[in-house]
Write a protein that binds this DNA or RNA. Sequence first.
DNA 1: CTCTTATTTCGTTTATTTCCTAAATACCGA
DNA 2: TCGGTATTTAGGAAATAAACGAAATAAGAG
Lengths: 101, 101
Amino acid sequence: MSDAFDALAHPVRRQILKLLRKRPMSAGEIADRFDLAKPTLSGHFAVLKAADLVWTERKGTSIIYHLNMSVLEEAAAVLLNLTEAVKPKPNRMQKWSTARR
Amino acid sequence: MSDAFDALAHPVRRQILKLLRKRPMSAGEIADRFDLAKPTLSGHFAVLKAADLVWTERKGTSIIYHLNMSVLEEAAAVLLNLTEAVKPKPNRMQKWSTARR
DNA sequence: CTCTTATTTCGTTTATTTCCTAAATACCGA
DNA sequence: TCGGTATTTAGGAAATAAACGAAATAAGAG
């Protein structure tokens, strides 16, 4: 989850997510909308992917990026709730609530 | 608003906000809950304040930090909606903003 | 296999962030 | 005013992030 907030910290990356809300797009298509070199965008894609905010699909020579809305929603929930522990916690045995106090 | 996402990118700052959700706290009180030097925390406070995520009140020699929940909510809304154009306050009916295509 | 298109990786430079210690500032009570 | 507590500012080292051009990789067409 921390990865998601790191990813969201950069305006270009938020803009990419915004584009992907409309429809999935190839890397090049996205890159064309920014005044940045393609390797730079590729780096941003990698950050978004590491944060699981997007997923990819290869289509011929292109790679199509898709928004992962659920992760965005989860991040929003964390902001409202600041629970931070909404992720994969298979093994949580709690002696006493981490949540409130 | 961009400041808010920068501020939220750091786990310690998110943790501070989480503490402030329960109740307002002095700088020292917050600092005691982290294993970091006080000036380091003071820097984090400054970032949160610049992002308008907290506001302060002096009480004697202490400075009390309060959470600004509305800004957090606004950030969450941006995530769900990725509008990003929430700057102008009272009259927000911008249908098509700064981004080009 | 070779050529073209799409995208990423590599190596490097520059900018920003994070953290620290030491010193400064602000307030209060005696 | 002096002394103590609370907090911030200053200055700097180390780590991380962002950007670029050049080269590498992947897939499809011929």
